[in-house]
Simulated assay, not measured.
Amino acid sequence: MRTASHPQTLHPALAGLALSGAVAWAAMSLGDILWLQSHGFSALTVAIVLGILLGNTLYPRLAPSCGEGVKFSKQMLLRAGIILYGFRLTFQDIAHVGVTGVVIDAAMLLSTFGLAWLVGVKLLKLERDAALLIGAGSSICGAAAVMATEPVLRARAEQVTVAISTVVIFGSLAIFLYPLLYTLQTEPAWGVRLPDFGIYIGSTVHEVAQVLAAARSIDQHTADVAVITKMVRVMMLAPFLLMLSMKAGPSVAGERGKLSVPWFAFAFIGVVVLNSFMPLPDALNKIVLQADTFMLAMAMAALGLTTHLSAIRNAGIKPLLLGAILFGWLVVGGALVNGALGRLLG
């Protein structure tokens, strides 16, 4: 009898993993479409969209048999994906943008996240977790930062999805806005010329894919600087999570009142160190990054599957308004910060 029951206990996890994996595979296939790439839509963004579509149509009938595996994808595979994300980064990246780029990145991260807390929690009266997730996505690296912050805050699925939605909406706007701003800054009427437009893009646009799409519309040099600046900003994710786990207070407490220390952030830093001084062979590194993208896509798919659109509708206009205010700060405040610090430190 025990032997017969064992597969039955495994079946929910396997079925859910298979479903999350199928959605992730479809998202990665669609993510290879040039039109989507040119508009800054990565496989991760596509995965959550597909997950939401299924989650609000077919998945409710599949949930009893797939719930365990979907939960595993949303939690454990997310953490594994964030750890492996470190293979995209090296400390040498910092040297490419110099002290100026690092300081500007840090200034934008702290100011944007602080503004999210002040406006979101104090003025708009949003739930703290919802405001902090939107702040994390806007200030660091978009959907990946939102997903990495979720285990620390133990936020609800709909809060995560709303935060990612703001990243998609305003990050997509940035793809078209920044090339226009680059053109305007060369006109006398604009009156402002930033020391390095690539650093400006990399320090203020939400997603890596969106940074690349916006910067490529200008020129290759701008794209190179923007991506490196963005990756340095991504590297700040680990210390940010550690700081959040220690400072955010009761909402990040565990079931017995202990802080939820993001252990995967330490592993993330360890992988960055390893990749900086003992990089993997190119062929192996490519395989690892493909596996990382697939795991993160599975996590995104699982998030979408467990998200109910009614919950997003119930969130109202305030999260979108907060995302818009933060986007305005990233564009206008980011230009001021880049101009001031770029000239002071450059």
Score class of each variant (00 low, 15 high):
Val225Tyr: 02
Asp282Tyr: 09
Ala214Gln: 02
Val227Leu: 15
Val232Ser: 04
Ile199Val: 14
Arg216Gln: 13
Ala214His: 04
Ala301Ile: 10
Ala253Ser: 12
Phe264Cys: 01
Lys318His: 12
Ile269Glu: 05
Gly328Phe: 08
Met231Ile: 06
Val208Lys: 01
Phe327Ile: 06
Leu237Arg: 00
Met236Arg: 07
Asp219Gln: 03
Thr229Lys: 08
Gly257Cys: 11
Ser203Tyr: 05
Ser276Tyr: 09
Phe266Arg: 08
Pro279Gly: 11
Ile218Arg: 01
Leu284Trp: 13
Asp292Leu: 04
Met298Tyr: 01
Val273Trp: 11
Leu330Trp: 04
Leu320Arg: 07
Pro250Leu: 01
Leu305Tyr: 02
Asn275Tyr: 09
Pro319Asn: 11
Ile287His: 11
Ser310Val: 13
Leu320Ser: 13
Leu274Trp: 15
Gly328Ala: 14
Phe327Trp: 15
Leu241Gly: 00
Thr222Ala: 10
Phe264Pro: 01
Val225Leu: 13
Lys318Gly: 08
Glu255Ile: 09
Val205Asn: 00
Leu242Cys: 06
Pro239Phe: 12
Phe264Asp: 05
Asp196Ser: 07
Thr307Asn: 07
Pro195Ile: 00
Met236Gly: 13
Leu212His: 10
Leu330Lys: 03
Val261Tyr: 10
Asn285Phe: 05
Val205Tyr: 03
Val271Gln: 06
Gly198Glu: 00
Phe240Ile: 00
Gly328Ile: 07
Gly270Cys: 10
Ala209Leu: 04
Val288Trp: 15
Val272Thr: 14
Trp329His: 04
Ile228Pro: 05
Ser245Thr: 04
Leu330Thr: 01
Leu321Phe: 12
Met243Trp: 07
Leu321Gly: 08
Val227Phe: 12
Lys286Leu: 12
Ala297Ser: 14
Glu207Cys: 02
Val232Gly: 04
Leu326Arg: 00
Phe197Gln: 00
Leu242Phe: 14
Phe266Cys: 14
Ala226Glu: 01
Asn275Arg: 09
Ser276Asn: 08
Arg233Tyr: 06
His308Met: 13
Lys286Tyr: 13
Leu237Ser: 02
Val227Gln: 13
Ser203Met: 07
Gly198Phe: 01
Phe327Gln: 01
Met278Arg: 14
Val273Arg: 09
Ser251Met: 15
Lys318Leu: 10
His221Ser: 14
Ile325Thr: 10
Gly304Gln: 07
Asp282Asn: 08
Leu244Asn: 00
Val272Ser: 06
Val234Phe: 05
Ser245Phe: 00
Asp196Val: 03
Leu242Lys: 03
Met295Val: 12
Ile228Ala: 09
Ser203Pro: 13
Val211Glu: 03
Ile201Pro: 01
Pro239Asp: 05
Pro319Glu: 13
Pro195His: 00
Pro195Ala: 03
Gly202Asp: 02
Pro262Asp: 03
Leu320Ala: 15
Val205Gln: 05
Gly198Ile: 04
Met300Leu: 13
Ala301Leu: 09
Met278Gly: 06
Met235Asp: 06
Met236Lys: 06
Ala302Asn: 04
Ile312Thr: 08
Leu326Val: 02
Val271Trp: 11
His206Ala: 13
Val227Thr: 14
Pro281Met: 13
